[in-house]
Amino acid sequence: MAEADFFIFIAVATLTAATPLLLAALGELVSERSGVLNLGVEGMMLVGASTGFAVAAGSQSLALAVLAAIAAGAVLSLLFGFLTLTCMANQVATGLALTIFGTGVSAYIGSGYTGSALEVAGPAGIAYLSEIPVLGPLMFSLEPLTYFAFLMLAGVWWFLQRSRAGLTLRAVGDAPEAAHANGLNVLRVRYLAVMFGGAMAGAGGAFLSVFYTPVWVENMTAGRGWIAIALVVFAAWKPTRVLFGALLFGGVTIVQFQVQGINLGIPTQFLSMLPYAATIVVLVVISSDRIKIGLSTPASLGVPFRR
C-alpha cells in the first residue's frame, strides 16, 4: 500500500509541477499559431507571479490574485502587441526586451515581499470524490488551476480544430496576405491571440507564486517561460504534444526532488538541471523529422504583416 501511495504522490506532484508550463505553453501556442512569436513569456510569467503574490498577500483572496495575474500578463502582452503588430517592430528583439522588462517589473512589484510566505491551505479536494482510492487523489484533489489548465488544453484543441474562429486564426498564421486579401482582419486576430498568450502566461506565473511555492523569490519562474516556448516548437504546435512535454518536465522535476532527498551524492545543481535537459533532449528526438515539422510550422511565424 505504501508503494501505491508513493506512486500516487508522484503522479499528483507531476501534474502540479506541469501546470504552470502547460498554461504558459498553451498561451504561446495560440499566439504562435496566429504567426506571432512572443519570446517574452518568461517576463510575462514573472509579472503574473509577482502581481498574483502581491494581491494574494493584500486581499487574502486567491481567486482575485489569479485574476490580477491574468490581467497583468495580458496588459504586458498588449504592450508587446502594440510594438510588434502596430509598430511592426522585430518580434524576436521585442520579445527578449519584454522578458528583461518583465523581470525588472516583477522584482519591483515583489520588492516588499522578498522572502515572505503566503498562508495557503493545500487543495481542499472535492468532497467524497477525493476519497475514492487511487482515482480520488489523482483526479479530485488537485489545485483548481490544474483543472483549469486541462480545461484550457481541451478548449484550445477544440478551438483550433473545430471552431470557425480557430480556423481563422490558423489561416492568419499560415498566410496573412491571403487572409487579408480575403477580408479577414489579420491584426485583430493577432492582437487577441497575443493577449491570450499573455493572460495564460500570467496565470502560469500566479500558479507558481500563489500555489506551488507560496513564497516570493525574485526570478522564481527559473526559466519555465523559456521551456514553455521550446515546448511549443518541439510539440510541432500541437496542444496534445504540449501536454506530453509539460508532463515530462513535471515528472523529471519531481523525481529529481526525490533523488535529492535520498542524497546519492549527486550535486543538487546537476539534478536541478535535469528537467530542463531531459525535456529538450526528448523533444528534439521526437521532433527530428524535419519534413513533418516544416509542414506544421505556422508559415508566417515571426514575420510582421504589412497592409
Binding site: 470557425r164 481563422t168 487572409a179 480575403n182 479577414l184 509542414l295 508559415a299
Partner: peptide, 16 residues
Amino acid sequence: FSLFPALTVLENILLF
C-alpha cells in the same frame, strides 16, 4: 496568396 496551404480544402472553403 489566396489559399491557406496548411488547411484542408474543406477548411479553406469553410473560412469564407
